[in-house]
Design a protein around this nucleic acid. Sequence first.
DNA 1: ATTGGCAGTCAAGACGGGCGAGTGCTAAAG
DNA 2: CTTTAGCACTCGCCCGTCTTGACTGCCAAT
Lengths: 346, 346
Amino acid sequence: MVSGRSLDVLRVIVQDYVASREPVGSKSIVERHSFGVSAATIRNDMALLEEEELIVAPHTSSGRVPTDKGYRMFVDHLADVRPLTPAQRQAIDQFLGASVDLDDVLARTVRLLSQLTHQVALVQYPLLSKSRVRHVELVPMSTSRVMSVLITDTGRVEQRLVDVPGQIDETFLAEVRARLNTALGGLGLADAAEALVTFPTQFDQSRHPIVALLASSLTEQIGANRQDRLVMAGTANLVRTEEDFSGSIFPVLEAIEEQVTLLRLFGEMAADQNVGLSYDNVRASIGRENAEFGLGEISVLTSGYGAQDGSVGRLGVLGPLRMDYSNNMAAVRAVARYLTGLLGED
Amino acid sequence: MVSGRSLDVLRVIVQDYVASREPVGSKSIVERHSFGVSAATIRNDMALLEEEELIVAPHTSSGRVPTDKGYRMFVDHLADVRPLTPAQRQAIDQFLGASVDLDDVLARTVRLLSQLTHQVALVQYPLLSKSRVRHVELVPMSTSRVMSVLITDTGRVEQRLVDVPGQIDETFLAEVRARLNTALGGLGLADAAEALVTFPTQFDQSRHPIVALLASSLTEQIGANRQDRLVMAGTANLVRTEEDFSGSIFPVLEAIEEQVTLLRLFGEMAADQNVGLSYDNVRASIGRENAEFGLGEISVLTSGYGAQDGSVGRLGVLGPLRMDYSNNMAAVRAVARYLTGLLGED
DNA sequence: ATTGGCAGTCAAGACGGGCGAGTGCTAAAG
DNA sequence: CTTTAGCACTCGCCCGTCTTGACTGCCAAT
């Protein structure tokens, strides 16, 4: 069985390989680490690890490289997620403290995370379904056009144009607005959508069509696909680490731009309580575990943020298998915490 | 001097090189095109072109490749910008027709352009300075926080949070809102900013601080740096064409994410009436012409859009020197026109 | 369980010859 | 003056060979 020292060997293999990007051999291990045993002994341990499929030799006679399974073991049991340095914490403070609105907060967050990790950073927009209606606004844009604006307590603003038949009566619009806010204010979005179904009935029959139109626009806004969106930064980092990918990074970049794939992955990582669960709620999905998403050669680290339990959205980083898990997990964790605090203040 | 046929030779060199990505020699030219002369004659022409620095031979004995100057000549005098095929026009119709709001229009536009050209596509947000105030909204978010929302006639929405001292009086807020809309509605943004300076004076002295706070927030929104923003798509295409870059594409990707560099370039292309002016208002900036932006190995094609004269913003594509200028310029032109029409309808 | 030694394996890099595409030049022809 | 054919020359590229060096696996000894 894989003994204690064997696991230590696995740890240094992962660490050295990540640092040097070269397969690590038994000799270099005894040189760089004080195991107090000879290279031959390390070789025996490595043979064990290879049997367990935690490492492989790319060529018959070269050093060893961690497998997906090896990285998984490292992440689950071997990585020490050090807290960030004070300097790093201060950087977070300075960088995020000056934000003015939600868009700005998220944009800064994602850039920060990308800079801390030197990887592609991703931040999911706060899930609307978790937020509440703060305010509804109806703005006449022209004689037959209204812009409906939905503002949530997470600071998100959704706007949409509605064409209404006939002329718009401004005082009537004001009344609809007032009643909408009375009816929906403070409701969770799911409840708000429900309330909208019967909303038009409180108006005079003759007004129904136009009110129904507005209500359905709002319903759409609540359920809009845009409720799931990602901001990202640092795609250039993918190119920097290109040598770590056997094939091209083209499909990876496509998936990132497409978003939908990553959103599914995020969803799965949020849902799955067991697989990928890891240190202090930072979860990892490694290599082949992402195969169904066409991302079999990358790793994704995510954490929930917002609402204390982190259920409002997820953020994380994406990069090659060969990444600095310890550091990156620490960064993801710290940024998620900070963002949670920032959103909680409002 | 470079005769008529020499220029024809330059044209086919550019075309063949773009298509095959291989230096093109005299023999392959006579094979693939019916010049009615022998290879030796073509060689003489090529010697001329080389003297004019329109083409170079990468190695002593290999075919020729266009220089920056050669591409420039091609774009200015030789490229025939064919109208798009009906199928392509229909694709534009279908793709952009279903848009719901400005964000959506721009997002669709940029993706469309990227798909038509197989390059990185860029669309600048409509310049606020060209738009007018449609509506101002003040929404109480908490007891001491107000969200100010600025809506322009180009459909753009800017929101911002304002902390105000003390409790917020809702009826007072309603009054401020009403007066703001009276004072600013319909004004161009520059005028609106001016009007905001004296706006607080129409209120009771005791109210000045809070009104001034709101007014300055709005002023910021008008002048916010976010008025210049780019949406982009197709960064994956850069990777696909990576072989066309002598160095790494890393700095290029960085510049794209940074935006500020590209915005400067866009600004210059909008301003400069001579340099880079080209067919039907699609402008090109080629290779070393972008050197000051650190983009000496790429070409950018842009066109203005909006307000008939195309002064509301710019859109375009970015790619390697070795790109299909004819097709891409046609696509940029068509999309810019379509977008102008779309915005004009509102 | 650990160690030293030894033979075997294989990727990577250096060397070198042959191939072929393409050029420039020159002299002759239109 | 332009065009053409012919010819010698230049290099980049491909391919096979050889050497080197870093590891491993195994075995016998401790």
